[in-house]
Amino acid sequence: MKRNIPLILAFLAGLLMIVSEFIPHRPFSNMVETLEEWFMIIAGFSIVLGLASLLQMNYQKISTKAENWGYHLACVIAFAVMVIIGALWGMEDQPGLLGQGEKIISWLGKKPFDYTYDNALVPLSATMFSLLAFFIASAAYRAFIIRTFESNLLMISAVIVILGRTGFGTMLTSWIPENYRFWQLPVLADFIMQYPNTAAQRAILISASLGIIGSSLRIILGIERSYLGGDK
């Protein structure tokens, strides 16, 4: 019974979503929005679960003085600070327990929550994102090492695309007559991106879409149930 009820619900919800995709008449027309709202409500409740997990895990590390426990302490302190300043003065236009906090806004320029968010979280996120530049360089270096016929092809097309997207590539092949324009690097780069690259991406997308249909059907029919934890 514990397993059957979720399976019945999954079947009904899946069927409703499929039907509402093809029927524009109410009640099917707004079914997707309604179910999405339900999902958001359930997700809202589950945030408590996430927070409990976060605090439990960090508390455990701190209390046992596990290796690098200082990082966990920093995490809990940061969490507590954000909760407290958010509760006291609110965020953006929303007031907190102490109102809008005009005095503190005149001092900081914005609410403490927004100030901390903009000056701590946003730069930290940007730092993580900027790591991509270095990782792309190291990954590209490894990918472009010529070992096999395929990696040779990859290297050649990568060089064409990289050069074709720069002014230097344009300059290198600008002498090629208009009748043989195809061999100019920018045109060749566009060709590679537009045809072989798009074709390969679409092949992956089509097969993934078929996989999604198959997986969805397995879930709707209750054949695939390991996401619920098991078969019984």
């Binding site: 679960l49 976060l54 455990q60 979280l121 996120s125």
Partner: peptide, 13 residues
């Protein structure tokens, strides 16, 4: 249970 845990909703966090 503590081996399966929540980190943060923030993508880069």
């Amino acid at each position: 249970e503590e081996s399966i845990f929540y980190l943060t909703d923030d993508q880069f966090g």
